[in-house]
Simulated assay, not measured.
Amino acid sequence: MRLRNKPGAKDTILNHPELILTDGSDWKGKWQERFGNDQPIHIEVGSGKGQFIVEMAKAHPDVNYIGIEMQTNAIISILEKQLEEQLPNLQLLLVDGADLTDYFADSEVDQVYLNFSDPWPKTRHEKRRLTYKTFLKTYETIAKPEAELHFKTDNQSLFEYSLASVTWYGMTIKKVWLNLHESNFEGNIMTEYEEKFSQKGQPIYRLEAIFNGKKLN
């Protein structure tokens, strides 16, 4: 979905370096210092307009959250929410999710969230899917051994692909939901897309998978 340009977005971003970074490489391996505590670090790759990451930060003040988004018009919406909330456990990164090893040290991240990622349905675009093996390798590199990946989507084909991809990669499937909103799952925080799709009666798919330590290749 194309987002409308917001006048002054770039200036707003540049004026708030305490909340949002366009290059986080200076904090690689030092994110807990930036937060000023030793709480676990959870990241969301592709945060969109930020409802999920903001509400997670509000609900879990004992966790540090980093929302990662490459579209300026999307992340400015998160920044606006954060300017209102001033959550001490939320930071934003305006960077490409493919380059996470430039911004996080090995084993620095405790959990990774992927919510309603672009399905890239054409076979020739498989490598762009955020659950493709090269992305999984990137997440594993920056994640602690036995860290978890949590994934949600309304797209059945992408969900089936992702189940296969994490399995082939050697991750352990912890739990799977084929219709999240009809389950007994507690504490679900919805994204903007999730609200939209669930209101239309579409099932929401979810999985939790565990990285099984560092790979040698």
Score class of each variant (00 low, 15 high):
94 L>W: 01
92 L>Y: 03
17 P>T: 05
171 M>P: 11
58 K>C: 07
197 F>V: 12
40 P>H: 00
197 F>P: 11
205 Y>H: 05
41 I>K: 06
140 E>Y: 03
213 G>M: 01
161 Y>S: 04
163 L>G: 02
79 L>M: 05
41 I>F: 00
23 D>R: 03
165 S>I: 02
165 S>Y: 00
43 I>K: 15
199 Q>G: 12
99 D>M: 13
79 L>S: 07
123 T>V: 15
151 F>M: 11
2 R>Q: 10
70 M>P: 05
63 V>T: 13
85 E>K: 15
122 K>F: 06
22 T>E: 12
27 W>L: 13
185 F>S: 11
89 N>P: 08
35 F>M: 11
125 H>Q: 14
154 D>Q: 10
199 Q>P: 11
191 T>D: 04
28 K>R: 12
164 A>C: 14
188 N>K: 09
26 D>V: 13
210 I>C: 09
73 N>D: 02
131 T>M: 10
193 Y>W: 10
145 P>I: 00
61 P>Q: 13
10 K>R: 14
199 Q>D: 13
168 W>M: 11
138 T>K: 15
75 I>C: 06
141 T>G: 06
12 T>C: 11
113 Y>N: 07
128 R>F: 10
7 P>E: 03
88 P>I: 09
90 L>N: 05
99 D>W: 05
127 K>Q: 12
9 A>H: 04
33 E>T: 12
153 T>L: 04
79 L>A: 08
